[in-house]
Amino acid sequence: MATDECRLRTEEGVEALLEYCAGRLHAADAVVLESHLAGCAPCREFAAAQQTVWQSLDAWEPAIETQGFQSRLNARLAEDSTPAWKDRLRAWSSGISWKPAIPMAAAFALWAAISAPPRPEIPAQAEQVRPEAVERMLEDVDMLDQLKLNAQ
């Protein structure tokens, strides 16, 4: 970048001016920039305005009390690390290995099936009466009545 060219014309130039005003420009680059500023009024104005911004921002130091911050955070961490009963139950059950329980459950089911008493047979009278059968029977009775009437 030519030293006599106004730095405001390029992005690199503006960046260098901002860094210079922030006091973050490398010492050698700062010397070059200062010699440029001596002869460039727009860059001087820019730098002066930017330094005003910088000083104004420096004045804004928040006075925040952070004494209770850690204790409040500790309380939230403690709350956060105490799981709900559902999570605790899930955690407890996830710790249990279910593999040995499967053959045990199968053996129990087999034993229950073998040792259970036989089911009593349902007596014939207990069969349910179907509506179609009743209708059919009534029709048969009607038919017999008609046959009787015809015979007479």
């Binding site: 925040i64 409040r72 955070l73 939230r76 961490l77």
Partner: peptide
Amino acid sequence: IHYVFRMVQNQAIAEELAQEVFL
């Protein structure tokens, strides 16, 4: 805390959000 405060410009909210950050 200072960064969040300068963003939201409210002390109580800044502290609350900063706690959330660390959580």
